[in-house]
């Protein structure tokens, strides 16, 4: 799994204080929540790729790995955009994008759905949503790639997150790769018993994959309970976390925090005042 895995490297990003890395995570959450048109989202995405390169994080490999889910997100976004044919929905883009219909699906009087159409504006919106999803995954993956667990514990603790919150974060961090590994092993085991994707229909394929998740979900229920047990058995919650790594806030951290917080505030400002980032 090229993403969602910590890489113990000594890059400039790895050496940042955990607090700076949390600021990175939250700043990008703000930025990506604000923008929903392709150009601004692409700028944000490219900035993540650049920061990723500094951390020796292989963004391209992650994108290749995520190609199928991203395509699914694009399809869902297109579905979501079927009702975006009203000109008032577009502030920066030409109003005619709303009315330029590529494919008309249903007419005005259609029960429940009403009028639905794939428009140029809708496609642009779907592209922006997909890029936003991609940027979000890259941001989180980069955070995990560059932040060790003890840094996460220390960082969350230092910003006053309660123990339960720390544990939920930690368990998610651990369970997701475990879940993927279990599904992979189950698919291997069932492939050896003749299981195969025998349908070209994506919905049927999804159903077949869902069946494969049954053992993994069963396992996860037990594992998530036992992880809590294992954490408590190792004195989790006994007091304040210490650290064995050399963690200190340096001038670079102040600079990074200032830039990131500034970028987040600026994005909210330009969005609210100048409507930058709107469709």
């Amino acid at each position: 799994m090229p993403f969602l895995r910590y890489a113990p490297l000594n890059t400039i990003i790895h050496r940042l204080h955990p607090f700076s890395k949390f600021v990175f995570l939250f700043s990008y959450i703000v930025i990506l929540s604000v923008f929903y048109e392709p150009i601004t989202v692409t700028v944000a995405l490219l900035s993540v790729v650049v920061i990723g390169a500094l951390a020796k994080f292989d963004s391209l490999k992650t994108i290749r790995t995520l190609a199928s889910p991203l395509f699914m997100i694009f399809v869902l976004s297109i579905i979501n955009s079927l009702w975006m044919y009203k000109p008032e929905m577009y502030v920066n883009l030409p109003k005619e994008f709303a009315t330029t219909v590529l494919i008309q699906l249903t007419g005005e009087g259609t029960p429940i759905l009403g009028r639905t159409a794939i428009t140029i504006g809708g496609v642009i919106y779907a592209i922006a949503l997909s890029l936003r999803a991609l940027a979000g995954v890259l941001v989180f993956s980069l955070f995990v790639h560059a932040t060790s667990m003890s840094e996460i514990l220390y960082g969350l603790d230092s910003i006053g997150v309660p123990r339960l919150g720390v544990f939920i974060f930690m368990a998610t961090y651990r369970l997701f790769p475990l879940f993927l590994r279990d599904i992979n092993t189950t698919i291997e085991a069932q492939t050896l018993r003749g299981w195969k994707l025998d349908s070209k229909n994506p919905l049927k394929q999804a159903g077949q994959y869902m069946a494969m998740t049954v053992p993994a979900f069963n396992e996860l229920t037990v594992v998530s309970e036992n992880l809590g047990l294992a954490a408590e058995s190792r004195a989790f919650g006994a007091g304040r976390f210490s650290t064995y790594q050399d963690i200190s806030i340096k001038p670079l951290d102040y600079l990074v925090i200032t830039v990131l917080v500034g970028a987040a505030l600026a994005s909210v400002f330009v969005y609210s005042v100048y409507h930058i980032g709107m469709l």
């Binding site: 992880l227 047990l229 058995s233 190792r234 004195a235 007091g239 210490s242």
Partner: peptide, 29 residues
Amino acid sequence: VLEDPDQQLLAPTVEEEIAFGPINLGLEK
């Protein structure tokens, strides 16, 4: 130490896994 190691390992590296308990105990670096 529980029977199944997969159900008690929490950290992304071996070193951090071992350090997890002492970190929780608040020991010196």
